[in-house]
């Protein structure tokens, strides 16, 4: 009985997850921003990362020109790449392009929002407010839910590997 119940539950979760992101998306102009989250910061860590997915359903490209947040005076989009076993991180040159009809994903181990000199720690269960300023679509206010310090995404109940 329990097994059947958990199988049913798993089916429901599986069924529900693909549509979750879309239902959850925040729309502005031709852009849909979904799956936003950030990670709880460790004590004394002055930086935090932010992650989300931006889908451009329009026929014109847009650009994410800046990000502001009350918890940091310095928010940038950074890239992270591995050069052998060396992690290299740097600020994106200029704005982040959101090509027409495409989806840009900011996720752990890649492109991400970098909050520098944060004014308060990011606490799991709370949210971090941000404003995404798009060149065409305009400004979008969002709350990033703070997940665990090593969370991979809003759907993952716990840390998960690929």
């Amino acid at each position: 009985m329990i097994r059947r119940l958990s199988a049913a539950l798993a089916a429901v979760i599986l069924f529900a997850s693909p549509s979750f992101a879309e239902e959850d998306a925040t729309h502005i102009g031709n852009l849909a921003v979904s799956a936003p989250f950030t990670r709880a910061t460790l004590p004394n860590a002055p930086v935090g990362g932010g992650y989300l997915t931006i889908e451009n359903t329009g026929t014109e490209p847009d650009r994410l020109v800046s990000i502001t947040s009350p918890v940091s005076n310095d928010v940038e989009v950074h890239t992270m790449t591995m050069d052998g076993d060396v992690m290299t991180m740097k600020a994106l040159d200029g704005a982040l392009e959101i090509p027409a009809g495409e989806t840009v994903t900011l996720a752990p181990s890649g492109l991400h929002i970098m909050f520098m000199n944060i004014t308060q720690p990011f606490v799991e269960g709370e949210t971090v407010p941000v404003t995404l300023n798009f060149e065409k679509a305009g400004a979008l206010d969002l709350e990033l839910p703070v997940l665990g310090p090593a969370a991979d995404g809003p759907m993952a109940g716990h840390h998960h590997h690929h």
Partner: peptide, 17 residues
């Protein structure tokens, strides 16, 4: 290092697990 936004917290979490 503590000013490390991703790799260090993630690795510490891995070690803990």
């Amino acid at each position: 290092f503590t000013h490390c936004p991703e790799v260090c917290p993630t690795t510490l979490a891995e070690m803990a697990s």
